[in-house]
């Protein structure tokens, strides 16, 4: 049986629904030692900002039960260096590239998008309005409906390419944000970014993470992610890229059933850099066993 694993997200067509999440594979260099990136649905770059960011001081991460907290602080090489040194590398990998953009003002989002729009290798933009670890931008935008609307609207004016807005779970009604994205011309949403969390050292009574709080990721957040995706899926007609604690192919199927058109994998890359391959194989076998011709049939196939 011929299985079609390809899926569409806005104008973007990818060869399978497995996408490497932003901030978990840098610009592809290191993960390319394990994966042939052309075989993966897409890779989302580490957030790019106009100027380089050196990131937060250590300690930046801590393991928590079935998860981890991180406060890397959007460390990135900046727009210029990305264009000069990272884009040629990504071109060499022949991968489908989605560029994640982080900014501290609407103008900065627009400037980055407009500049990067000229590069054919970049097929879509993921707009990060939900990083919990930086003061400016990040959650200040992510929890503000009108700011998310304005950003979507302005970025839309700067590019014809697919726009994905990465939503925060750190609010009560994620579907309202998805509605605003749709109304303002966004093509898709990715859900969810990390959940704000912290951990203390009981001897020093200090937070373990220097930034005090960090973003919780890993299997610990999977049920939250599924519920948020389901909420969006039931209320708003917009493609969803699901993420949050996906560890194996069964999780991928579960996310698609809950409403995701494609998924992103993040934390699992740190532990098993071959995870993407294993998932592609696993979902193909699932489709064969269940006589599913097109994997996209699974999206929002929940029986409530």
């Amino acid at each position: 049986m011929d299985i079609n694993l390809s899926v569409n997200i806005g104008k973007l067509k990818i060869c399978n629904p497995i996408i490497l999440a932003s901030g978990t594979v840098g610009y592809g260099e290191e993960i390319a030692k394990f994966l042939e990136l052309s075989k993966i649905g897409a890779i989302i770059t580490k957030s790019i900002s106009l100027k380089p960011r050196k990131g937060n001081p250590p300690q930046r991460i801590v393991e928590t039960p079935s998860g981890m907290l991180n406060a890397i602080g959007l460390a990135n090489v900046g727009l210029e260096e990305f264009i000069t040194n990272k884009i040629p590398l990504l071109e060499k990998f022949n991968s489908t590239v989605i560029c994640n953009i982080a900014a501290s003002s609407i103008e900065e989002y627009v400037e980055c998008t407009r500049t990067l729009n000229d590069f054919d290798i970049i097929k879509a933009f993921e707009i990060n309005v939900s990083c919990p670890n930086v003061r400016e931008g990040g959650l200040i935008f992510g929890n503000d409906l009108s700011a998310v609307g304005k950003i979507t609207n302005q970025v839309r004016a700067a590019t014809e390419k697919t726009i994905i807005i990465k939503l925060s779970p750190n609010n009560s009604q994620i579907s309202e944000f998805a509605q605003v994205v749709k109304d303002e011309g966004g093509d898709a949403v990715s859900a969810i970014n990390t959940l704000v969390g912290t951990a203390f050292d009981i001897n020093t009574r200090k937070p373990i993470i220097k930034n005090i709080t960090g973003g919780l990721s890993g299997p610990a957040i999977k049920p939250v992610a599924l519920a948020k995706i389901l909420e969006i899926s039931r209320k708003i007609n917009i493609p969803i890229i699901g993420l949050g604690g996906i560890m194996n192919w069964k999780d991928v199927i579960e996310f698609m059933i809950a409403g995701a058109s494609a998924v992103q994998i993040g934390t699992v890359n740190f532990i098993n850099p071959f995870a993407a391959y294993e998932m592609i194989e696993g979902i193909a076998n699932y489709c064969i066993s269940n006589s599913i011709k097109n994997i996209s049939e699974l999206t929002a196939s929940y029986q409530l």
Binding site: T24, E30, P58, R60, I61, N70
Partner: peptide
């Protein structure tokens, strides 16, 4: 976390 440069935790 990773040990090979992608998590930027260290």
């Amino acid at each position: 976390a990773c040990g090979f440069g992608i998590c930027q935790g260290c």
